[in-house]
Design a protein around this nucleic acid. Sequence first.
RNA 1: CGGGGCGUAGCGCAGUUUGGUUAGCGCGCAGCGUUCGGGACGCUGAGGUCGGUGGUUCAAAUCCACUCGCCCCGACCA
Length: 565
Amino acid sequence: MRISKLFGKTQREVPAEAETASHQLLLRAGMISQVAAGVYAYMPLAWRALTKIENIIRDEMDKAGGQELMMPALQPLELWQESGRDVAFGKGLFVLADRRDRKLALGPTHEEVITQMVSRNVQSYRDLPLLLYHIQTKFRDEPRPRGGLLRVREFTMKDLYSFDIDQDGLDQSYNKMLQAYNNIYARCGLPSLVVEADSGAIGGKDSHEFMVIAETGEDEVIRCEKCPYSANAEKAESVKGPVGGGEPLPVEEVATPGMTTIEQVSGFLGIAPNRTLKAIFYIADGEFVFVAIRGDLEVNEIKLKNALHCAELRLATEAEVLDAGIVAGSASSIGITGIRVVADDSVTTGTNFVAGANKPDTHVRNVNYPRDFKADILTDIALARAGDECPRCGSRLSSVRGIEVGHVFKLGTFLSEKLGASFIDASGISRPIVMGCYGIGIGRLLAAAIEQNHDDKGIIWPMSIAPYQVYLCPLYRENSRVSEVTETLYEKLEAEGLEVLMDDREESPGVKFNDADLLGIPLRVTVSPRTLEKDSVEVKLRSNKDAEIVPLEKVTTRLKELIKG
RNA sequence: CGGGGCGUAGCGCAGUUUGGUUAGCGCGCAGCGUUCGGGACGCUGAGGUCGGUGGUUCAAAUCCACUCGCCCCGACCA
């Protein structure tokens, strides 16, 4: 490709709306063009890189036994009502009406469609297992798109769905995908981290995310400094106790004038925060909920949401707390009736806690679970934090930010049951198909690759996903030897199957070199009168500082070596 | 949805507070010439319904109202 013909220009100045590195560089390199908030057009350079990523994914999916197919973006809303996930996706679902006023959804994902299709085509255990995938545009009406391609409303996603006869089969399919995903990220030149994850609106049990570590990542990953444990902060666990307290003693009231926060109460009474119990109030799908947790811990709202099985969860307002008859600042679940109580299991890690007395300026000592109060739900709803102990090995946990570039779920049978996807097993009994799903956001992967591979000059593409492999850069094209050699070299390299971007513009060396660095093509070949004096060209890796002089007759061989790595 | 910011040429901005000729600057773009191994220079030139609608006024980029769009933080979400 000749740059003079390439659609898309580089920009010297950083567009005002872009803050993250990948967003800025994609715009400056002339790779993307914004159409609306979270909606982008991909220009030729970006499209080439995206296509390369797709093909790597395709290759690994096929190797793992996947069959590629294609499903529509347009789906009847009834299908989503049938599975019940129209509620889970809520406003994230793009809904529209056709001319007969039938409601349609723009698919945010395709489990419903594929499950219906599989249920029509699978009757026997002999038809299973199946691994089916497609690469399709998906639509999600994000509350807030951001960071260029990092979070968008219309995006290309590879989704594979697995169909098995039982849990063992699912585990096998799942492991195949874990392996395939590791291969994909490695081949894209991206070190990735597998972390335990919450399954969110997709639903299901086991779930893992693939993270690319980056400052600009939206997710917090909690991981152990010693053992392999790592999890999304939404899901992460940590060791909570024990905090002691001795033999349970009789409850006794204590005056705590003006003390309403854990800090104040523990300070006033001269005890550690972990010797207290804290009360927090939420509204879960309209219901007032009382939450109790040890004073030194914070509530993980994702865990709480999962424990309550609710779609919407928010903190209660002061007015709502008052309405519920709660004495804010001195509240506890002791003697509370008519309100659902969710307690973090940390309330059982010690004895003789200090908690609210449900009257102003008063707390009680020696509160013990379950002697003094009972929870309707007792489970882990605490936020794990850096510095906490690892739940696996007891070492310290630390925290990093990451970009979620892939997510895999063990769905189980809830969708196949809802949508009637079943098979007849070997003993002639009808059973629901056991499902899994495995997604990769292609554009986000591209953005993550740039987040992780750039410097202050521009992008540094990993070879495998670079739009072109070679940036052929003639200086002083008016020199006839330069232009002749460059043209010959260009044709030869292309004929040899190398992907070459030739800078055939009448620009100064500085402009060309800076654009070469901005575009980040892995190999730069400079042809100039100076190099031709020695019948050579200069070859430089974008990722390296130094260049090497390569004789003309050896250029092709040398470039091929460098491309192989 | 809550908070903050911004819409003036392809990009980055000034001008708006205090209304007043043909609305500026830099980059980029077109032509000519001189340069050119890390974003050169000179000359000439093209390019703008000042996001939109309505209002106030002799007069609106500038004041008022409404509205649309975009970015950032939070909520939420894969």
